[in-house]
Design a protein around this nucleic acid. Structure first.
Lengths: 175, 175
DNA sequence: ATATATTTTCAGAAAGTATTGAAAGTTCAA
DNA sequence: TTGAACTTTCAATACTTTCTGAAAATATAT
């Protein structure tokens, strides 16, 4: 009886971990990294590298690499248990914080290069025989630039905003 | 002289296409698909499959497959030139519309399955000896569910909203 | 210092995805 | 119908990404 319940919880966690992995890979995040994140989200206690290897059936190298990546993204942190030499890891469990952190990192990693490219390609000067085409090209690029900067500002705002402020603003607008 | 200008435009387009491809693959979109989309965005005229093959240096099968996928995403449409048998393709160039369309599709494809899994795993019933653990697990899942439904509603609103309405709302909030 | 525990690295292997190209399928004008 | 023009499919292949595992590096206790 007790056994059954324990298995159910284990299965639920397993299912969630798989789903989170799939979700991640749809969004350009390495599946194992997403699974590892999910595992730590549903672990009441911090886990060691060995426990993670065991739970996800992955190698030490793989575990280490993805733990580092998650730490790099600011989603996981090291925990030192007193009197223990081994490192343990725990994840942020508050989804709003997770979202903000991911948004922040992606913004940092992707917005800068996009603006750079858009700025560069927008510089094309028209010649005598392709004035029209250059103009049309520049229009499209300008449109993208404008969208990108609006999105960027919005994103920055959301990142800085407090959860309740953000949500309540939207709820008010929806009503 | 004229030659130089033409080359510059071509290079700018090329650079943009590459950048768009990279951006896409960071977000879980096949690189060729993103490049094809970029190519059509900067083409004043609709292009045929052969022109696309030529521009991107890809095979007919690849071109065909990615054109279909883009049509499926609602980002590209067939254009029939009067008196011509060959099909031509053109892309939506308004970034706001592109964004809305992508958001709409992703929502359709991803929100449903996530809610399903969250609903399922949230059902775990506590046994005698893991009450605490089940409760903690359910808390995390509930948090994600709540975030997901808020995000979903916000997304729906954005999709339905008119560009100006959306932006001006945000601008007001920022001021 | 030395031994031991733990983490990190990285070349090669495996797995996962995208691409090719030729054959099959479709459409349509004559 | 026929066949030329064009589109779609799909098995084989190429390419990319991820993973492994053992060796190297690092940290800690004695």
């Amino acid at each position: 009886m007790l056994y059954v319940c324990a298995v159910e919880l284990k299965e639920a966690k397993e299912k969630f971990i798989q789903a989170w992995g799939t979700l991640g890979s749809n969004w350009g995040i390495n599946r194992t990294m997403a699974q590892l994140h999910a595992l730590l989200m549903v672990s009441p206690e911090p886990l060691s590298t060995d426990e993670i290897m065991e739970e996800l059936n992955i190698s030490r190298g793989n575990a280490n690499m993805n733990i580092r990546a998650l730490i790099d993204w600011g989603l996981v942190s090291k925990v030192h248990k007193p009197g223990e030499r081994m490192e343990y890891f725990s994840a942020e469990k508050d989804m709003w914080k997770v979202f903000k952190q991911v948004a922040k990192e992606r913004r940092k990693r992707e917005v800068e290069p996009i603006f750079k490219v858009l700025g560069e390609v927008g510089q094309v000067k028209p010649g005598k025989h392709n004035k029209e085409e250059v103009k049309e090209f520049q229009e499209v690029i300008k449109g993208i630039q404008s969208f990108a900067s609006k999105t960027d500002r919005t994103l920055e705002m959301i990142i800085k905003a407090d959860e309740n402020w953000f949500l309540s603003s939207f709820i008010k607008l929806v009503k």
